[in-house]
Design a protein around this nucleic acid. Structure first.
Ligand SMILES: [Mn+2]
Ligand SMILES: [Mn+2]
Ligand SMILES: [Mn+2]
Ligand SMILES: [Mn+2]
Lengths: 227, 227
DNA sequence: ACATAAAATTAGGTTACCCTAATTTAGAGT
DNA sequence: ACTCTAAATTAGGGTAACCTAATTTTATGT
């Protein structure tokens, strides 16, 4: 019996754990993420533990079992494939795809996922630059770091965004910054770390440190000084 | 709060009512259709009545209110649009589309439905020949009758099927009969009403009366003798 | 160490959905 | 009218998912 709510719990644990690998995933974290209350989550954790999908104790928090991890990665796979399909095939914007994919990810038809994955050309990354796990749950590797860690003069390419909110994505779209765009860090304000960037066709934009932390990049020059 | 179960109840009432307009839709009918038990259905009918989506009494059975009808037709619309999309765009067979559409029909995004409806060219009928309601719930008209009512010599075109089971649809596919194919009734066995048909490229096939009742056709000749 | 604040847990309830086992009604046949 | 059957309804439960209001732990700041 694998309901979409159960899928959401497992996915939440996966997301929270991969977001910050150092901290434990607490009932409160999950509750906040899923917009539920801690007792509700705790109750469900008990059930997931009994089903062997999760382990939990208050010190280590919730962790996915191998079985639970497999289920979670499968949902993540479906989510990111749908996002890519919506983006590339159905011309939705990268700020719209997440919400619809939240629903589509629970449609249970392996053949359908396979079909749309073929249609979009079996890509490794979704419209936000997030890796698409393969059927075995293996994630394609990619080497990336936040734009906020760049030093002056660094030329880098945008490989992803860590935040998926419409607000943030529309903000980037307004700045005319997209996936795979190249950026040059012209200046870094030493007071508040605001970045002056030059982007496509030498447009210059200012970006807060807060925003820069959410943008994942890779240096373009092989021996760039940003580590 | 409109859950997919509620959507399924409303759709079931709609389907049962349109299948046989003479008979009332009883709790037992609905229970059978949804693979539930009558008390379960009765309970839900009470809730739907309270919500103003349905009227019910044991003599007239369950009827959709204008509001309930609107919801039901919207689900039917989504279902048939998805079926068509799966069929035309994603190359699923007409026997596969129903099951997947049963899930996809509950995805709540008007923009998504609009988009895929545009992609498939805003057709009036789905892969089984069923009419796709417009946003206002209006059904395109079509003039059709069961193939079993044809008389000898009738030349007609297949516009739809009344049964959607994989078994039946695969059977038709094996007979090489598809939507929009033209058939000629060569002979009707007077004992059991078995039809001898000639179909595409003069293949001759035999078809039981039972199967012929499930095939919806229209006469090709303007003044065909089958009324 | 001690007071406090935050997080986890327990207790106790609600609603949505489903079920089985009566019981009551309605219909059909005689 | 009377009987028998099938359908509708009532009674009584169960589970999954949520919640609020305690209570208990755990962590934190003096
Ligand atoms: Mn997403
Ligand atoms: Mn994404
Ligand atoms: Mn269908
Ligand atoms: Mn159909």
């Amino acid at each position: 019996m694998k309901t979409y709510r159960e899928e959401n719990y497992l996915k939440a644990i996966y997301q929270l754990a991969s977001h910050d690998k150092t901290r434990t995933v607490s009932p409160t974290d999950i509750a906040h993420w899923l917009e539920l209350k801690p007792p509700t989550v705790l109750e469900k954790l008990g059930i997931l533990v009994k089903k062997g999908l999760v382990t939990y104790n208050k010190f280590d928090g919730a962790k996915l079992s191998p079985k639970g991890n497999e289920v979670a990665l499968n949902i993540v796979r479906r989510h990111r494939i749908w996002e890519t399909y919506l983006y590339k095939q159905l011309k939705f914007s990268w700020s719209e795809v997440h919400e619809i994919a939240e629903q589509l990810e629970h449609v249970n038809s392996e053949k359908l996922i396979d079909r749309i994955y073929d249609v979009i050309g079996r890509p490794d990354f979704d419209p936000h630059g997030d890796p698409i796990p393969n059927k075995q749950g293996k994630l394609p590797k990619s080497d990336r770091r936040p734009l906020s860690e760049s030093i002056k003069g660094c030329k880098c390419v945008v490989l992803g965004v860590s935040e998926h909110s419409e607000l943030f994505l529309n903000y980037l779209t307004e700045l005319n910054i997209r996936l795979n765009d190249k950026l040059v860090v012209e200046q870094i304000n030493s007071y508040d770390d605001t970045l002056k960037l030059s982007s496509k066709n030498n447009e210059t934009v200012l970006m807060s440190s807060k925003a820069a932390q959410q943008i994942q990049v890779q240096c373009v020059k092989p021996n760039c000084a940003c580590k």
